[in-house]
């Protein structure tokens, strides 16, 4: 029995000899159960800040000031969201943010896919060199060019408009160009040849063949651009001044200043959760693309 088990083990799975067949069978089950327990416990601890945020946003002021705080609100106060949202022009800021985000997505997709196509499919003098330039430009810290860029936009009179936050998207982002170029290179080269024989020019190939085939990569770029531009804080902080032109992240910060004195933590949390909802929606519908995008290039921290 013992010997037979060993022989099977050696030829079948290359596992080392097991002492008894029972232990051999029980061990992985035990191990996996333990693993699940660790992961689930970790996941719960990990999620506590989020759940606390949501539960606080639904409580009353006396409830959050009681110590120890009750875990759950006695009565769920959806009203907090309405009170917080309407106490400042959040609706206006929501549309501002949405506008900036949509324009950024459009500009990024267009400019980055064109440049990526250029790097992946066309030949020109200095292509390798320019691609190296592109790669090394990713290493330049954003803050080194922050001040002169501000001076340019200031000179153009673009302060307090959405232009400094949207126009640069139409000039490409090195990381997304790199991501798309890597993806374009995985498409079969024969498609390009076949299309050329059929009389397609480069622009046709780009628009009719490469773009439709690259939906996963374009979705990843869309998802990242959405998050970056929705969460952006430093950009709006520098360029936007007038209350009606703020974005949600600036508005939240203004709300924080207002709430500081009153200590209305529940309203603060309600407003914060509300601004996160679009992100959560996009994330849950597009989570596959985030993970693909991250693993695709091995970048993005």
């Amino acid at each position: 029995m013992e010997a037979k088990q060993g022989a099977v083990g050696r030829t079948d799975s290359l596992l080392p000899l097991q002492k008894g067949w029972r232990w051999h069978k029980v061990r992985p089950v035990l191990f996996n159960t333990l693993l699940y327990l660790i992961i689930v416990a970790g996941g719960i601890i990990f999620l506590i800040p989020f759940t606390w945020m949501v539960s606080t946003s639904l409580k009353t002021l006396p409830e959050i000031q009681r110590i120890p705080q009750p875990l759950m609100p006695e009565v769920i106060r959806w009203d907090n969201y309405w009170v917080a949202w309407t106490s400042l022009p959040f609706t206006r800021w929501f549309f501002n943010t949405a506008f900036i985000t949509v324009v950024n997505i459009f500009g990024t997709l267009l400019s980055c896919s064109l440049a990526a196509y250029g790097f992946a499919y066309t030949r020109f003098r200095g292509r390798t060199f320019l691609f190296l330039v592109l790669l090394s430009s990713m290493m330049l810290p954003y803050h080194v060019r922050l001040i002169p860029t501000f001076l340019i936009f200031n000179h153009l009179g673009w302060i307090n408009t959405f232009l400094p936050l949207t126009v640069p998207a139409f000039f490409g982002t090195a990381f997304y160009i790199f991501l798309l170029r890597q993806f374009f290179l995985t498409l079969p080269k024969e498609l390009d040849d076949a299309a050329r024989i059929d009389g397609c020019n480069s622009l046709n190939i780009y628009w009719r063949i490469v773009m439709p085939l690259s939906k996963p990569a374009l979705a990843a770029v869309t998802a990242f651009t959405f998050i970056d531009s929705w969460n952006d804080f430093l950009g709006p902080l520098i360029y936007l001044r007038q209350d009606s032109r703020l974005t949600l992240s600036l508005g939240l910060r203004m709300f924080l200043d207002f709430q500081e004195g009153t200590g209305e933590l529940h309203l603060m949390m309600a407003a914060s959760v509300a601004t996160l909802i679009p992100i959560l929606l996009v994330f849950f519908f597009a989570q596959k693309h985030f993970v693909e995008g991250v693993t695709f290039t091995g970048l993005k921290g």
Binding site: S111, C112, L114, A115, Y117, G118, F119, T122, R123, F124, R125, R127, L130, V133, L134, S137, P168, F170, F171, G172, A174, I177, S202, Y206
Partner: peptide, 15 residues
């Protein structure tokens, strides 16, 4: 040989 530059032109100008 030239059209490649046109494709990367937006990025190059922005860069």
């Amino acid at each position: 040989r030239v059209e490649g530059y046109l494709f990367i032109a937006p990025w190059l100008v922005g860069f």
